[in-house]
């Protein structure tokens, strides 16, 4: 409550800055103070990485796709667009192109919807939240191939626990049952069901990441704004529609596009579960590239197949960058 009456008056001793007493008056900063140099040093690894690990393989892929190189004859002879013509005539390629889009869009739309539900739940306080969070994140910590092998057993044509449960509750195995009279569903053996299985496992695997992204989006909305909407008379439903969804749209779009790119370029789930089967019903571009180019040894056609995705991925990447700029809320 008392004023600063006890303060002693400091004698005006301002410490002199470095170089202030330099006779010439002009002081040059040392090498440690040069920001330009530091920037170059810090950026160099990224530039090296992009040139060596992205640029070089890309140029190589373009070269291969225009040649007739194979594992048996690695000499590079340019043959023009023959490879592209050949794969376009191939019905398997057209099936895989279609499957790639079904697989990517089907899984990502569901991932976005489900991750929003999970993220909304995790925004609330409830008992055992740590356990829920732990379980939701668990698939992300499992090595992809191992997790998928686990699913391979779950979806086994004879010993699938899902089939066993369905038989037990009377949905499967007897004439007139909802899921049919056979003893098993043959998850990975029937074209439509195989696609459903592959998509489901892929969702299981990408859901944790999408949930974390959605959670970040939801918690970035200032609490004030939600409360203001509440005071302004918005019901919870309207708040979601008019405030939460529009405000998280940029970050959700990024999660969606990221998942799309990830799905387009990844082959683990399909390769482990179905190897593209049955009869190419789950064949996607990435697995088809692998089978043609690596297992079949036709590097040129493999490169051409993989390059087909380039325009799509480039477009998606451009969109992502634009979205990233739009996320600057307020």
């Amino acid at each position: 409550m008392s004023g600063p009456g006890t303060l002693e008056k400091e004698p005006g001793a301002v410490p002199k800055g470095p170089g202030a007493d330099d006779a010439s008056g002009r002081v040059r900063p040392g090498i440690r103070d040069r920001q330009g140099l530091l920037a170059k040093i810090l950026i160099a690894p990224a530039v090296l990485y992009i040139v060596a690990m992205v640029g070089f393989p890309f140029v190589l892929a373009v070269l291969y796709s225009l040649s007739d190189v194979s594992t048996g004859d690695p000499t590079l002879r340019i043959v023009g667009f023959r490879n592209f013509r050949l794969i376009l005539e191939d019905s398997v390629f057209r099936t895989s192109l279609k499957n790639t889009f079904i697989f990517a869009f089907g899984s990502q739309i569901l991932v976005i919807l489900l991750s929003r539900v999970l993220a909304t739940a995790l925004m609330k306080e409830f008992r055992g939240k740590w356990l829920a969070r732990f379980l939701i994140m668990l698939p992300w910590t499992a090595p992809i191939a191992l997790g998928t092998i686990g699913w391979l057993w779950m979806l086994d044509s004879i010993y699938s626990p899902f089939d066993w449960i369905f038989r037990r509750v009377g949905l499967l195995g007897a004439p007139g049952d909802l899921l049919g009279p056979m003893q098993n569903l043959y998850w990975l053996g029937r074209p439509a069901l195989a696609m459903v299985s592959v998509i489901t496992v892929h969702i299981w695997r990408l859901l944790p990441l999408a949930t974390v992204i959605q959670l970040a989006g939801l918690s970035s909305i200032p609490k004030d704004i939600i409360e203001a909407a509440e005071v302004d008379g918005a019901t919870p439903w309207r708040r979601t529609l008019m405030i939460t969804i529009p405000l998280t749209l940029p970050i959700v779009s990024i999660a969606f596009l990221f998942g799309l790119v990830f799905t387009f370029t990844d082959m683990t789930v399909v390769y482990v579960l179905t190897r593209g089967g049955p009869v190419h019903a789950t064949q996607v571009i990435s697995t088809w590239t692998f089978f043609k180019g690596i297992e079949g040894g036709d590097l040129a056609q493999g490169a051409a197949i993989s390059l087909f995705l380039f325009p799509v991925l480039a477009g998606v990447a451009a969109l992502m960058l634009r979205m990233a700029r739009r996320t600057e809320v307020v």
Binding site: P222, D224, I225, E227, A228, E230, V231, G233, P246
Partner: peptide
């Protein structure tokens, strides 16, 4: 009662304008 049934208006310190 929830806020919307109280016929009140509030101005927040941050103004809480809807940014979009």
């Amino acid at each position: 009662l929830p806020p919307r049934m109280r016929n009140i208006a509030m101005v927040f310190q941050s103004y809480a304008l809807y940014p979009h």
